[in-house]
């Protein structure tokens, strides 16, 4: 299981990379593996605002659907349009090409409520 050190994680299996007050968000390697072959990604609209842990989109595999939750409060400033045509990137590169949304974060300190890589690893081990 790939859990990059430099990211923060939610218990809903999203990852977050904070750069100043801009957060890039996607779903984790564990999440994509659990879902299987991803065939559809539905993302929010630019300008939409979300509270932390609110659903902002969904990821669908052949067999299942899973909501995407924003791990942090903020406003959508960019979405990854390439996922419309290439949803399978979520399977092949969940932490890279398959980033999903960029948020302008309301309060960057909120990131501290998210899990570190070590904590997320522990969380996965305790729940699976």
């Amino acid at each position: 299981m790939n859990i990059p050190e430099n990211l923060r994680y939610s218990r809903d299996h999203e990852w977050l990379l904070l750069d100043g007050d801009i957060a890039t968000v996607g779903i984790t390697d564990y999440a994509q593996k659990s879902l299987g072959d991803i065939v559809y990604v539905e993302l929010p609209k630019i300008g939409e605002k979300f509270n932390a842990h609110e659903p902002c989109g969904s990821v669908e595999s052949v067999k299942a659907i899973s909501e995407i939750f924003t791990p942090i409060t903020g406003e959508v400033i960019e979405i990854n349009e390439t996922l419309n045509d290439s949803p399978e990137l979520v399977n092949t590169d969940p932490y890279g090409k398959a980033w999903m949304v960029k948020l302008k974060v309301q309060n960057p300190d909120e990131v501290n409520s998210l899990l570190t890589a070590a904590e997320y690893k522990e969380y996965l081990e305790s729940t699976t």
Partner: peptide
């Protein structure tokens, strides 16, 4: 088995 390593597709 719901799927093997290759995956459903």
């Amino acid at each position: 088995p719901i799927q093997y390593q290759a995956g459903v597709i």
